[in-house]
Design a protein around this nucleic acid. Structure first.
Ligand SMILES: [Zn+2]
Length: 275
DNA sequence: ACGGGACCCTGTGGGC
DNA sequence: TGCCCACAGGGTCCCG
């Protein structure tokens, strides 16, 4: 489900609601959600931690505590954080609950159960491969145009596959890749090294632009996605390629095509984006 | 380096 | 009504 704009929207909603709150109790209902440390250490260790800041890198949420410890969360396909009253009825597929002061709770609900949590001390966090292997986030300083052009030139893989590779660039997923390639008028099958400098540059700005728009509309809700306050996104109303098979291209009127690429559904305009 | 497939899991929608 | 298939915003691992 969530890509960078959705994760960023969740980050902001958490930042708004839980900063300064101290965890009273932790209940783990799905042991597979908690990857580190062992479930009992996780449940005990988090009690008393006070949320100090919510960060994000790529699609990872970084829930930081006053102690310096950190909870790293990946929502994968269907993970949701929901900040609710403790007396709110229970939801199906609740995997972890953090009890908070004033009768509030932070619930981690995940239909498919792919979401992950790692609770780290500062020195452990630094060596977590999932995070330190990530490529630059498009809103980081390291996401630099010269670096981008140079890096595309030495990769022969299809541009869409490269954009989905989180060790190359972090945060893009299937929706925003298709939207970025559409905006830059680039065929998803094109080998990265065959893009012209102009195309690479257009793509660079398209990625930033599309993600910024996604954030502005608080992400895309196709079926499940909600932020921590239970709000849906609106960007599904602005998609120009993803999910638009058979509908007319907003630029040229040609029907949007759907193909499979790297096992993922891929939507593009066969005219504007080459064949 | 690169491409492809299986896999983790639950739910939904279409065809018969 | 049921059964079977494809598909879903992600990531990892294994093989050729
Ligand atoms: Zn077009």
């Amino acid at each position: 489900m969530p890509e960078l704009p959705e994760v960023e929207t969740v980050r902001r909603s958490l930042q708004k609601r839980i900063i300064g709150m101290q965890i009273k109790k932790v209940k783990v209902f799905n042991q597979y959600t908690v990857k580190y440390p062992k479930v009992d250490e996780f449940e005990k260790g988090l009690v008393g931690e006070e949320f100090s800041e919510i960060g994000r890198k790529g699609k990872y949420l970084l829930l930081k505590f006053l102690s310096g410890n950190i909870l790293v969360v990946h929502l994968r396909m269907t993970g949701q954080f929901l900040f609710v009253d403790a007396n709110q009825e229970e939801y199906k597929h609740t995997q972890v609950v953090f009890e908070l002061p004033a009768g509030k709770e932070l619930r981690f609900v995940d239909i498919r159960g792919f979401g992950t949590m790692h609770y780290f001390k500062p020195e452990e966090f630094a060596t977590f491969p999932g995070l330190n292997k990530l490529g630059p986030d498009p809103f980081d300083r390291e996401f630099d145009l010269d670096w981008w052009i140079k890096s595309l030139k030495i990769r022969k893989t299809k541009i869409k596959s490269l954009l989905l590779d989180q060790t190359f660039i972090s945060g893009l997923g299937n929706i925003y890749v298709d939207e970025s390639l559409y905006a830059a008028k680039i065929n998803p099958n094109c080998p990265a090294n065959l893009l012209t400098e102009k195309q690479a540059t257009d793509l660079y700005w398209a990625i930033k632009d599309v993600l910024q728009e996604g954030i502005k509309h608080r992400g895309t809700t196709i079926s499940d996605y909600l932020d921590a306050e239970g709000r849906k996104g609106e960007f599904q109303n602005y998609l120009k390629a993803y999910g638009q098979k058979g509908l007319p291209c907003s630029r040229c009127g040609t029907e949007i095509s759907r193909i499979k690429l790297g096992g993922r559904s891929t939507y593009f305009c066969p005219r504007c984006q080459g064949k």
